[in-house]
Structure formats: C-alpha cells, structure tokens
Design a protein around this nucleic acid. Structure first.
Length: 892
DNA sequence: CACTCCCGCCAATTA
DNA sequence: TAATTGGCGGGAGTG
C-alpha cells in the first residue's frame, strides 16, 4: 500500500521530507530540497489525525485495530511528526480520500508500518531507479533516517543490502551514492556466475530446497565450490583483509545478501527457503551449528528478504514439501542477464566503453596520496556510463572518497573466478568440473573472452603473456563491468580509465604505465603491476598506453587495463600497488586484482607450495594467486619446455591463443587477438626469465608496486599478488617494458624501474604468503634493484586481467615450481582446475573441505595465516579499505 | 505456538 | 576519544 502511495508520491516523497531534514541534509539529494516545503503543505503537523480524530475515534470504537493504531500513533507521533513519511501517506490519502484513508494508513503504525520492507520502499521511493548518469545522488544517512523517521541503524540494514547489489555505494562516512538499477543486471549476473561456481550444482539439481540442502551438504563437502566461492564472496567483501578480523565482515549483511541472491540465481526453481538459506550460510561460516546461530541467521535473512522484496526481486511464498510447509522466497527478478543488462550489454565488449568496465575500474583502491593505501570503494560498478562522467568528476574530485567497496571488487573477483573457470573448462574442456558454470559463463559474454587471452603470447612458453593480452580484452569486460571489462578493448579501457580516475588520460603514456615487461627470455612473464595510484593513475597512461600499445601492438589491447586501478579489494594489499597499476590492468578488471594472477600456464600440477597458504584462506583468491605465481613460472617453464608436458590445456590454450592471434578469436577480443598477435600486450606483464629454480621466478611486479603492494597481498586474495610481478630487473626497469621477444613493442619506458625488487619480495610474501615462497627473485631477472621508483609501473594494469584469464583458463592447475620443466621458470603454476570445484589448487585441496561454500574472506583461512604475519598491517589495511579515500591522488 | 522481525545494546571500526 | 557501523539476539507483534 505504501508503495502505491509512494509511487504516486514518489515525487512527493521528497516532499515529505520534513523539516527534519533540514538539520541534516547535507548533500542530500536534490530531490529533497524541494521536498521539505511541500510537506508542509499538507500538513504541517503531524497530526493528521487530529483532523480526523473524531472519525478515528469512531472507527476505533468499531474496530480494535483502529484503536491500536491510534495508540500506536500516539506513541509514535513524535516520530511520525518528525518523520512524515507516515504522515505523508496519510496525508495524501487524506487529501485524496480523506480521513478514512488516513486512518488506514495511519492505523498501522504498528509493527508493519515500521517494517524494514516498508521502510525500504520509502527509501527507494526517494530515488529514481535509473538515475541519469550525470546526476549523482548522494544519500546522507542522517538525513534519510530523519526523514523516514527511523533510527539510523535501520538505514544501515537497507543500505547494506542495496550496497550488495550495487544500487548504492558508500562514498564516505554517512554518505552513500545512489546508483540505481543500472547495474543491477550486471551485478546479478555476476552473482549468478559466482553462485554457480559456488553453489552451482547444488542448486541446480535440486528443485527443492530439500534437495538443495541435501546436495548442498554434499557438495560442500566436496568442497570444490568453496574454493571458488570464497573468493567470490570475498569479493564481495571488501575486506578480505583482516583476516583475523574477518569475523565481523564475514558476517556482514552485505555478504549474506549476496549469497542469498546467489542462491536464487542458481536455483532452478528460483525458490529458496529460509531455512535452507540459513543453513547454507551458516555452513559457510562454519559456525557451529548452534541453534541460536541458526536463529540469528534467519533473522538476518528476513531483514535481507524484506529489502529484496521491496526491490521487487523476490516475494514471499511458502513451500510445502514433504517435510512440511516452510517459509520461502521466490525470485521474481530477472533471471537472465546476459546481456541484458542493458546498458552494459549494449556495449559490446569491445566497443563499448563499457560501463561495466568502468565500473570495475571504479573500484579501486588507491593509495591515497597519503601514501597509504586505502582503498576506496567506489561503486564503480555502479556507475555505468554515466559513470564515466561521474568518474571523471570523481576522479577529479578528490574528495570523493569513494570507497568502493570491495564489493565491487568482489564482484569482479567473482567474475573473474567465473571466468577462470570457464576458461579452464574451456581449456580443459573437460575437466569439467564445473561445467555448468562454465556453460553459463559462456553465455555471458564476458567471461569467456578473456580467457582467450590467455594464450600465450608469443611463445608458448609463456603462457603468461598471453594473458595479458588476452586479458585485457578479455576482460571481459563485459561481463561485469567490473571486471573486465572488456573494455579492455581499448575502449573499455579507456573508459575505465577514466573511471579510475586518474586515468583517463590516456594519453599515451603508454609506456609509463605500462606495466609490463617482458623478458624475452623466458618464460615468463609477468605480472602485473601495481600501480600506483597516483602515478599510475595518472598514468593512466594506461589508457594512453594502451592505446598506444595498441597502436603499437596493434592495438591491441588496450589494455585497458588500464585503468583501473581500482583495486580490488582483494588485492588490496597489493592493491596499493596495484592500484596504481594502473590502469590498464585494472581496467581490465578490476578484478584484475584478482587473479590476475597470471595466468599462465598451464601446468597442472599444483604446486604444493601454494597450497599451503591457500588452504588457508583465501581460498580462491589465494589460490589464484598462487597459481598465478606458480604458474607463471612453472608454467611457463613447462610450457616452454614442453607443451606436451603441459597439460593439454596449456597447449590448448596456447593454441588458442595462437589461433587467436592468428585468427581472431573472439570478436571481442579482437584486441586480444591482436594483442596476442602482437604480443605486445604483454607489456603489461613482465617477464622474467626464469632462471631455474623457483627462485628463479621472477616476477615482475609492476614497478609500481611497491612493496606495499605486497602487503596487500596479504590482504588476501587478491591475488593480486599475483600479478605482480616480480622481477627485478633493473633492466626492466629500464625498459619500460620489457618485451618479450615476441613482443616487441616497446613500451615506453617505464618510468622506472622501479620495480623494485623489494617489492617483489614483499609480494611474495604477502601473496604467497605465506605459503609460498615465492620468490621472487630476481634473479634471473634482474636486478631488482632498481630502485624503484614508485612511479612507474604502469604495467600493472593490464595484467590483472590477464592473469586472470589465463589462469582461469587454464584451469587451475597449479604448477609447481618444481617441475622440472619449469626449470626455467621456477615458478609453478597452478592451474585451476576447473573441475568443478575443483579446486585444484592446492588450496583447494586442502580446504576443500571447507564447509562453507561461501566463505567470506575472512573465513578464508589462509589469508589469515599470512595475514597474521603481516598482521597488523593487514588489518590496517582492512580498515583502510573502509576508509574513504579522498582522493588526493586523483589526478584531477 | 510458530513465524516474523523490530529494537536497540554494544562491540568493532573509523574519523 | 568520539562517532559511525553493524552484529546480534531478546522478545514482541502477527496470524
């Protein structure tokens, strides 16, 4: 009912606002302003009743309900008055109908009136579903709370859920930015993908909840899902960071909301019962089974469900199963997102700028000028095209602190993950584990593409390289915006870039940005760089670079990557670094972070090392990272050595890549292909030659990466680490890019070589974390020493995406460093397995068990472990995450 | 009585 | 240290 009113009122709504606002309104939305006055109009006073008091009395006499209402009203009056909302409604009615109506409405001051669902409707009524891009609507929590007459706590409940779907993003303390439903499709798509990975099968199979449960359990055990899931989840969560800290976040309403939505999207029937959902969620958490926890979970689910219901995404139903009748919710929102998403879709991946991309991009972390890194959360996603503009603004605006939430990142992550899988699957084809997922993915455009990338670039050896290229393009941008945007394609990139804020530029800075380096030698490859925030960002060059490159390369790729800097959350750690990264990568994905990892190679084997960590926590992300890392080296090595050795996948990939190069694979990917062809892309990455041994790895990191980045890693997942690269080389440094042999293009020189060894190191640590030892070495590579200036690093950007893709592609196999093959490259890769769950990665292995499907970042263990190491820092980081950033950095 | 879920304490995080 | 966020669960409203 309210809704209706609202609808009518909608415009009015604002009006409603009472004076109350006054006090607070800060920035509020424009809408409001007008509002205030209006309200008054009808009833200045809250007492609508008064006028009708008589009637009411009568009524009440007639019905108890009425009485109650009145009572309540009285009780509430203060509130109402202040609020208006209620009043307003009533007013309206009054106006229209009259008291009668009023009464109705008013009547229920009771609980229902105060329900979260209704409150959410009121909240939503205040903002347009599809706001113009240009206009940014900021939401002041205080204001809204006062307007709606509720405590702020309630607003958090709503906002957290909306944030999980990217309808809003937290900009700063007490301030959120309204994005509307522009990106909803993408978000849902992401969630669907993520959900498939995680839950996938389960849901599918079961029609019913029961089944679900049932399956659920099984699956869980299998663990597979977990792995991936986690990461995904993590994405969502921003903070992966604090490992230990996770606790709070893990439970976050935001995450629960995403998971809950995932369940719907994955479910065939689109019906999810509360108890099942609660069980699933609990499991993830692992919480003990306590009954109490279950109850708590259910309470939360009701909260979430109320909001989702208000959004028109689900509705309450009852499922009668054999077991009995249970409360459940049915998904009534969109089911397919493929392109749908409208806008997003519209863009072709390639072509478009991609809003999505942007989005992805948006999220970033940045280091603040301050030097610390923080993340900002943006809602990158959210913004779509408009975003660009906005972004620009944003970027320019320093203050906007947007923080992005990790969610975005998460989402990206998710996407990435999905992608990876897909790829993997693709590659493997078989492997299949996850087929389903994969399939899905295929649908999506997004994902896939990227993978393609993977291919190796020129050499087969490197699997890595390919990545990059691919990556970018891959990016898939499509998909999620975030992630990858395909944008990669150049355009996308560009977009993203902007988004990033700094970015934009595009200018050709290529070089600088570029993050990549290639080393001819070997195998290897690269990494991602980090970027720096600023610099990089500025660098934007990425875009420019990209362009450049592309041009050079062929265009290729633009890696879009560029852009983004966003960081991902995950990466955060790295993030910092990455952030910088820039662009390119980033753009690509935000995700990039993720996984970035590089991709690489093939090889299946896993590396043990990696595992360790993984196990812990991070789960996927971690894994990825590891993988990446590993991959890189090993993979590369192997690859190099033998394809044969490698798993088919690798080969395949390579082929693919090659083919692509040759052919062009996918459309979107053109760039990619180009890139591949060119290989240039690579630039983004660095190669390192491997020397032998693990040690050998070289990773490169982006130059920029600062050590800090590494830390990020710690954060987790983010694989970021991966990206990194390590390598040292000064040489590299010198170059801006390194090219691999194949590659030629020169990138511009990087600023500096900053790659620092150190960084690398760090990296390793972090990322690897623990586990692995990564190495970093410079060895082969070079000297790391270069001093790193921070600046440089352009590279970064791209990679991530790339990496990911590759990784994905490959599946997870992990390679181990050990492998002889690798020799050259020490590193190992991991592949991911696709298999369904598989977690191929070591981690998966271990963890496999994890109970939870979804894990939040926090849950992840591993991370934790290493986190511990990093300890404080990590935490800090997390906190950091939340912080807003102000963008000092932003170029503008 | 079971289902919902509001309310607000209070801890974790941030500023 | 103060303010903001948000987990959590008691317990009330509803049917």
């Amino acid at each position: 009912e309210n809704m209706f009113d609202r609808s009518r009122m909608a415009p009015k709504t604002p009006i409603k606002n009472e004076p109350i606002d006054l006090s607070k309104q800060k920035g509020c939305t424009p809408e409001r302003n007008p509002i205030t006055p209006v309200k008054i109009i009808d009833r200045p006073q809250p007492d609508p009743w008064t006028p009708t008091a008589n009637l009411k009395m009568l009524v009440s006499a007639a019905s108890p309900d009425m009485r109650d209402r009145e009572k309540k009203k009285e009780l509430f009056r203060p509130i109402e008055n202040s609020e208006q909302s209620d009043t307003c409604d009533s007013l309206q009615y009054d106006i229209v109908d009259d008291s009668t109506v009023d009464e109705f409405e008013k009547q229920r001051p009771s609980r229902k009136q105060k329900s979260l669902g209704l409150l959410c409707q009121k909240f939503l009524a205040r903002y347009p579903n599809y706001p113009l891009s240009t206009e940014k609507t900021t939401i002041s929590l205080d204001e809204v709370a006062s307007i709606l007459g509720v405590e702020r706590r309630r607003i958090y409940d709503i906002v957290n859920v909306l944030e999980s779907l990217h309808l809003v993003s937290r900009v700063a303390k007490n301030q959120y930015c309204w994005h509307g439903r522009h990106n909803l499709s993408q978000t849902l798509k992401m969630l669907q993908e993520a959900g498939e990975l995680q839950y996938g099968e389960l849901m599918t199979s079961q029609h019913k909840e029961q089944d679900l449960e049932y399956k659920f359990g099984e699956q869980k055990k299998e663990a597979i899902p977990d792995f991936q899931d986690r990461p995904l989840l993590e994405f969502s969560e921003p903070d992966c960071i604090s490992a230990s800290a996770n606790s709070r976040k893990d439970k976050s309403l935001r995450i629960m909301s995403q998971k809950f939505v995932m369940l719907f999207l994955v479910s065939k029937t689109k019906i999810v019962t509360l108890d099942i959902a609660a069980k699933i969620l609990i499991e993830e958490t692992q919480d003990t089974v306590d009954h109490s926890k279950f109850k708590t979970k259910v309470r939360r689910l009701y909260d979430i469900a109320n909001v989702l219901t208000s959004l028109g995404l689900i509705k309450k139903v009852h499922v009668t199963e054999e077991r009995g009748r249970k409360p459940a919710f049915k998904w009534i929102g969109p089911v397919e997102f493929p392109g749908k998403t409208d806008e997003l879709r519209g863009h072709s991946p390639t072509s478009d700028p991609l809003p999505g991309t942007q989005r992805g991009a948006c999220a970033q972390y940045q280091t603040s000028a301050t030097g610390k890194q923080r993340f900002t959360r943006h809602a990158s996603f959210n913004r779509a095209q408009p975003c660009e503009a906005a972004r620009r603004k944003v970027s320019s605006e320093p203050n906007s602190p947007r923080q992005e939430r990790q969610d975005e990142n998460c989402s990206k992550m998710i996407n990435l993950a999905a992608v990876c899988r897909q790829k993997i699957e693709e590659d493997t084809g078989n492997k299949a584990c996850d087929t389903d997922t994969i399939l899905n993915s295929s649908k999506n455009s997004n994902i896939t593409l990227p993978f393609s990338l993977l291919p190796v670039p020129g050499d087969s050896d490197f699997c890595v390289n390919p990545l990059p290229q691919a990556v970018f393009p891959v990016v898939q941008a499509d998909v999620p915006s975030f992630s990858l945007p395909i944008g990669i394609s150049s355009q996308a990139s560009h977009l993203s870039t902007p988004a990033a804020s700094k970015t934009e530029n595009g200018k050709p800075t290529l070089v600088p940005n570029q993050p990549f380096l290639c080393f001819p030698s070997s195998s290897l490859f690269m990494l991602c760089g980090g970027l720096q925030e600023n610099n990089l960002s500025e660098t934007l060059p990425a875009s420019g670079d990209v362009g450049h490159r592309s041009a050079v390369a062929q265009a290729a790729v633009p890696p879009a990557g560029c852009q983004k800097r966003s960081s991902h959350k995950c990466s955060s750690p790295s993030a910092p670094v990455d952030d910088e990264e820039p662009a390119a990568k980033k753009q690509t994905l935000e995700q990039s972070d993720l996984p970035l990892s590089l991709v690489v190679p093939k090889k299946p084997s896993e590396s043990p090392k990696a595992e360790p960590s993984p196990g812990s926590g991070c789960s996927s992300a971690v894994h990825l990272e590891m993988n990446c890392l590993d991959l890189a080296s090993p993979a590369a090595a192997e690859a190099a050595n033998e394809e044969s050795t490698k798993p088919l996948d690798c080969q395949e990939r390579e082929k693919q890549s090659q083919n692509k190069n040759t052919d062009e694979p996918p459309p979107g990917n053109e760039h990619i292909s180009k890139e591949n062809a060119n290989q240039p892309f690579q630039p983004q990455y660095l190669y390192v030659q491997p020397t032998a041994g693990l040690s050998s790895f070289n990773f490169l990191f982006s130059a920029n990466q600062a050590p800090g980045a590494i830390s990020l890693a710690a954060n987790q997942l983010p694989s970021l680490s991966v990206p990194c690269v390590m390598v040292p080389s000064a040489a590299l440094a010198s170059f801006p890019l390194v090219c691999s042999p194949s590659f030629t293009s020169p990138l511009s020189p990087v600023p500096d070589g900053s790659f620092s060894a150190a960084a690398s190191t760090s990296f390793s640590m972090s990322s690897l974390a623990s586990t692995t030892p990564v190495f970093i070495s410079t060895t082969a590579v070079v000297t790391p020493k270069v001093s790193p200036a921070p600046s440089v690093d352009p590279q970064q950007p791209a990679h991530p995406a790339l990496h990911l893709s590759p990784v994905l592609t490959r599946s997870c196999s992990a390679v181990k460093l050990d492998s002889p093959v690798c020799m050259g490259h020490p590193v190992t890769l991991l592949k991911l397995q696709q298999p369904s769950s598989a977690p191929l990665t070591p981690k998966s292995i271990r963890p496999a068990h994890h109970e939870a499907f979804f894990k939040t970042p926090g849950s992840l263990g591993d991370p934790v472990a290493w986190k511990k190491n990093e300890g404080n820092q990590t935490r800090n980081a997390s906190s950091v995450q939340r912080r807003l950033e102000i963008s000092s950095t932003s170029p503008d």
